[in-house]
Simulated scan of single mutants.
Amino acid sequence: MTTKAKVLHLLKNNSTFLSGEKIAQQLNVSRTSIWKAIKELEKEGFRFEHQAKGYRYLPSDVLDSVEISHELSPFDTQVTVLAQSESTMKDAKLASTIDTMKPSLFIADTQEQAHGRFGRSFFAQPGQGIYMSLLLHPQKHFEELPQYTLIAASACVRAIEEMTGKHAMIKWVNDIYLDGRKVCGILSEAVSDMETGEIRSVIIGVGLNFSIPQIQFPDDIQQKATSLFPDGEAMITRNQLICSIWKHFFSYLADPTQAYFDLYKERSFVLGKSVSFSQRGTTYQGIAQSIGPKGELIVDTPEQRFQLLSGEVSLTEIDGLPSAKRG
């Protein structure tokens, strides 16, 4: 660990002021090294209170791999933080070729080519969003896999409520909404082994609008998208929300009672609503009745009952939510 990282860790874990001399003694370096480390950290966006008696850490919304790794250490997760990424999904795919069984989390301060299902673009802003992808190595056949998308969605709404008190809802199958507007999208992809037929890797991507001011959203999605803190003033840090999301995710993943499934259905605003969808070139209208054990949306239409699977169809309308497929 570098001197800079050691200084940050020490100050983060102390609520009182620490003098430069005391920090230098604890780390066995010069006071000049401490001063330089503080200056470098402040350039990166970290905040400290300066007084004659020393330095004190102030809450800073800077993505910190050390903090996140520490919080996720019970799950043995490798964490990589990038200032910028073309796509964290691509970063995870590249890493999937490395022979490791540890979960790997890739987080970017911003993305150049953020996208969701069907290649739809996802509006990204530097320092104001959460763009991350988790790489897992399940080594299972497809039918044995957990419902990763449903688990991730449940983990997101639980974390949002836990950290902010806000009541987020889920649009089947992978979008999180606040006050009728999309705040988060989830994308799951699998990489199979042709020889064994097993799923070698699964990548779960999460794009969340964290503190983008509402006025900054492009005109075409101004009424369809929002952020967790639309006034731009966040009451928590991105690190805290990231850690909460994946803690809930891993807990749900290990829970044999599948508690995530009950939460997913409870927070669904699709169930009981009139929906229309397209399948093989034909548009159908019906009532969303329930969600099956594999995450399928069960819709009753005048013609028949449909079990809609992720990737097979795209919902085109939900009663009371205009243009639900966009945003």
Rank of each mutant, 00 (worst) to 15 (best):
S30M: 06
R31A: 11
R31N: 07
R31H: 06
R31L: 08
T32W: 14
T32Q: 15
I38P: 04
I38V: 08
K39Q: 15
E40D: 14
E42T: 07
K43M: 10
E44A: 11
F46L: 03
E49I: 08
E49F: 09
E49A: 13
E49N: 11
H50K: 15
H50D: 06
G54E: 02
Y55I: 06
L58I: 09
L58Y: 06
S60R: 01
V62S: 00
L63Y: 04
D64G: 02
V66H: 13
E67H: 11
E67Y: 14
I68R: 04
S69W: 03
S69G: 13
E71R: 14
E71Y: 15
E71Q: 15
T77Q: 01
T77R: 02
Q78K: 14
Q78S: 11
L82G: 00
Q84S: 10
T88K: 00
K90Q: 13
K90W: 13
K93Y: 08
S96M: 01
T97D: 13
I98C: 10
I98Y: 11
I98D: 10
I98L: 15
K102C: 12
K102Y: 15
S104V: 10
L105C: 03
L105T: 04
A108Y: 00
T110R: 12
Q111V: 03
Q113W: 12
A114Q: 02
R117N: 10
R117V: 05
F118L: 15
G119W: 06
G119A: 13
F122Q: 07
F123R: 07
F123E: 09
A124M: 00
A124K: 06
Q125C: 14
G127A: 02
G129L: 07
I130W: 08
Y131L: 10
Y131T: 03
M132H: 05
S133M: 00
L134H: 01
L135N: 03
L136S: 01
H137K: 10
H137F: 09
K140V: 00
Q147C: 12
T149H: 05
A152M: 10
A153V: 03
A155C: 02
V157R: 03
T164D: 05
G165H: 02
K166Q: 11
M169G: 07
W172F: 07
V173L: 08
